[in-house]
């Protein structure tokens, strides 16, 4: 994993620790399940415990995926909460590959007061998903591949425009602060939340 800019508090150790914590969390969860069921039911139900999706795969050896990169960053706690509320954790743990534009906590803070809280309400899940999916491209666009004026069609169906001038990159005008390679793609840290210009489906 390479960190290509300042201000980014990632490191491998943080992420590995994070995974271990997640693993413990799962264990607790299983115990809780068991407590809600009789022993007999548990035996019968065990094979049906189809489990969570790919995000629950217990693997602390492999390089972190885009979600784990975000989880490992103290500056992206709001994004992580949003990705969980938007039920995109499993999808982004998929083989992808993905290019994720990850707004920092400060970027979310720039939104009008109450916006984030509003988006996190269950009734606004589709709107939240639309916004989050506007931050994801299927395919890996490395920094060297970025060309000035490059258009990317995002997962929600909307387009973003990348610009590159004098080595500085922006997306829809937001600054790209740095990038982190992930096992299933690349994460670009950005300083503003991207808002889809129009409804995702035409």
């Amino acid at each position: 994993m390479t960190v290509q800019n300042r201000n980014l508090a990632y490191n491998q150790t943080t992420i590995i620790i994070m995974n271990k914590i997640i693993a413990i969390g799962m264990l607790v969860a299983f115990v809780s399940c068991g407590q809600q069921q009789s022993a007999v039911q548990q035996t019968v139900a065990a094979p049906e415990e189809v489990g969570a999706g790919q995000s629950a795969v217990n693997d602390s050896d492999s390089a972190p995926n885009v979600v784990q990169v975000a989880v490992g960053s103290a500056e992206h706690s709001t994004l992580v909460v949003a990705v969980k509320a938007g039920e995109l954790v499993d999808a982004l743990s998929n083989a992808g590959p993905f290019t994720v534009f990850a707004p920092t906590n400060a970027a979310f803070d720039k939104l009008p007061d109450g916006t984030v809280d509003d988006l996190l309400k269950p009734e606004n899940k589709e709107k939240l998903q639309d916004i989050l999916q506007y931050h994801v491209y299927v395919g890996v666009i490395s920094e060297t591949m970025v060309q000035d004026g490059m258009k990317l069609n995002q997962v929600n169906g909307g387009d973003v425009v990348l610009n590159k001038k004098d080595g500085k990159m922006t997306i829809n005008g937001a600054n790209i602060l740095g990038s982190v390679k992930a096992s299933n793609g690349i994460v670009y840290v950005i300083d503003a939340v991207l808002l889809p210009p129009a409804p995702a489906t035409k």
Binding site: C33, A45, A56, V81
Partner: peptide
């Protein structure tokens, strides 16, 4: 973050309805 992670796994074992039963 930890709490959120746990919450996430909890959803995996909530009774989901007829399928699991």
């Amino acid at each position: 973050m930890l709490a959120a992670s746990s919450a996430l796994t909890f959803t995996g074992c909530k009774p989901k309805g007829p399928a699991e039963v």
